[in-house]
Each structure stands twice: as C-alpha cells, then as structure tokens.
C-alpha cells in the first residue's frame, strides 16, 4: 500500500476531497453558465460568518455556516429576481455585512485563531467523520437535484425567457439553484478554505467548457477535472509537505491550462482537416447553400 494511504487522516482527506471534487464542479457548471460565479465568492464570506458564530456559540461551525449560506443565498436570489437591486449590488451588501459580522465576532472572542486559520485556507487534512457525513449528505442531495432537474437547469442556464416559454418554472429553479450553491460552498470550504472555495467551483468547469461539445460531456469532464485536481493536489501536498488547499487549487489552474492547450491543438487540427460544414445564411455568397447541400 502506498505510504499516502497508511494514515487515517489522509484516507479521510481523500474521501472528503473526492466527494467535494464531484459536488463543486457538478453544481459549478450551472453557476458558471448562469454567470453567478460571484455568488459563490459572496457565500463563502457568509460561510466565514457562520463559522465564527459557530465557534463562539460552540455549535458545530460547519452546520451554522450551512444555515447562513443557504438562507443568504435565498435572500440574494429574492432581491435579484424581484429587481429591487441589481444582481451584484445585492452580492456586495451580503458579502460585506457578513464579513463585518465575522470580524466583530472574531475580535470579541479571542482563542480560536488557529482553527479560524484552518477555515480560511482549508483543513482537508483534519477533516473528521462528522464533516464526512455532512459532505456526503450534501453530495447526495446535489446529485439527486442535478439529475432530476437536469432539463430545468440546462434550460434556464441557456436562456431564462426561453425556459419560461418552454414551461420551466424559472423562479423556483433559480431559488433552488441559489440555496444549493450555499450548500456547495459550505461543503467545499472544508477542503480548500473560505478564500479559495470559488476556485473549486469555477476552474474545473472552465477547463471542461474548453473541451466539451455537449452538456452531458461537460458535466462529466468538469467532475473529472475536479477529481483529478483533488487527487494530484493532495498527493503533491503529502509528498512535498505543502498546504493542501493551495496545492489543490494550483492543480485546478494547471488543469485549466492543460485544457486550453488541448483545445487549441484540437482547433488547429480540425481547421487543417477542413471541418468545412459551415452552413449558409450569414456567409458570403448566395451559392453557398447549394454547395453545402452537396457536401452532405
């Protein structure tokens, strides 16, 4: 057995990390396509407030963070959808007010700075069984949600108005998406820390979008990149004695760079082999459609 599996904490880190690596990009795909990446960032600061309150009240901090993020997500979505505030204004208010509360709570009660440091930068190596259970339940909820509302989620990611006219209940879908984003942020926070949560949700998705043609492929590729990032990141952290969170996030960036290179190479080869099935309409000459019809 490789050395890396001989430690309990490492096995737990791998299990927890893998679960988050499936959860964050699977959900991140819809967040990125809806251009809501900043919501993840905002909610991570809300999670920090939850963690601080959890420490002070001696209630399980991740659980308080979960409640804080999901309820804030619902609030942000309400403000945004009713048009009371433009989307990013609502985000700013939630981000800074929760950060301010976190700062006040932390300053009032000294003594858990070391723990707090862990929540900021990730504590995957000290993940415990309770965390694993919570992440596992969240993963199950998100998988069931994404699988069963797949049509609704893809429709509203493509276009909200079109989705409405197709009969999708767009408002309800958006609300559910926001609330589960809160849950995803909370789960991911344990692995890469509050400050880098967005990376695990967004970067594997960007890498997948560079290569995927279809939606299902993009979903699987994003999860694949997420898993690979966590495994490689954890292994590097273990053998080179680096901070696990940072090492995982840097690996996601490397995956993204790799996807760009592979994508560029694919573009180059498909251009050389003349993928010339350009259709007509916006092209130059009126003879174009007949030519294309012949090529089929």
């Amino acid at each position: 057995m490789p050395e890396i599996f001989q430690f309990d904490f490492m096995t737990r880190a791998l299990i927890g990390g893998s679960m988050v690596a499936i959860l964050a990009p699977a959900f991140g795909l819809f967040i990125v396509l809806r251009r809501l990446s900043l919501i993840a960032d905002t909610l991570s600061h809300v999670a920090l407030m939850g963690v601080a309150i959890g420490f002070v009240t001696s209630i399980y901090p991740t659980f308080i963070a979960l409640i804080a993020t999901t309820s804030s997500a619902a609030g942000i979505e309400q403000l945004r959808s009713r048009g009371r505030l433009p989307g990013d204004a609502a985000l700013a208010i939630f981000l800074y007010s929760s950060l301010a509360i976190a700062v006040i709570v932390i300053s009032k009660s000294s003594g858990f700075n070391a723990d707090l440091f862990g929540y900021l930068f990730g504590t995957v190596l000290s993940i415990n069984d309770r965390d694993l259970w919570l992440i596992g339940i969240l993963l199950l909820v998100v998988i069931v949600f994404v699988a069963s509302f797949y049509a609704e989620l893809t429709q509203s990611a493509f276009d909200q108005d079109l989705a409405h006219v197709s009969g999708v209940r767009v408002t309800a879908t958006n609300l559910a998406l926001a609330i589960l984003t809160g849950a995803t942020v909370t789960a991911s926070m344990r692995v890469v820390g509050v400050l880098m949560v967005g990376a695990l949700i967004v970067i594997p998705v960007l890498a997948a979008l560079r290569l995927a043609r279809g939606f299902r492929t993009a979903l699987l590729l994003a999860i694949g990149f997420g898993l690979l990032s966590v495994w490689v990141g954890l292994a590097v952290a273990f053998y080179a004695d680096l901070a696990a969170g940072g090492s995982i996030v840097l690996t996601t960036v490397a995956m993204f760079a790799l996807a760009e290179v592979v994508g560029k190479a694919k573009d180059y080869f498909s251009a050389r082999h003349g993928a010339s099935d350009t259709g007509w309409s916006a092209s130059t000459s009126s003879a174009q459609p007949e030519i294309d019809a012949d090529q089929r």
Binding site: V32, L33, R35, V146, A147, S148, F149, Y150, A151, E152, T154, Q155, A157, F158, D159, L162, S166, G167, V168, A208, L209, R210, A212, R213, G214, F215, R216, T217, A218
Partner: peptide
Amino acid sequence: GMGTRFPATVEEIVEQGLYRGFNPLAI
C-alpha cells in the same frame, strides 16, 4: 447563454423544445 462557451450541440438545443414538464429521468 451564448458567448459563455455554452456546451450544447445544435441537437441538444433543439431537444429542449420537447420539454413537457418535470421528468426525473431526463438526464
């Protein structure tokens, strides 16, 4: 969704037009 590298083939987009309400097995 256009301009965000939206990952769908033409076929998949056309398939969206067949949406007829909640179907848990759609994926």
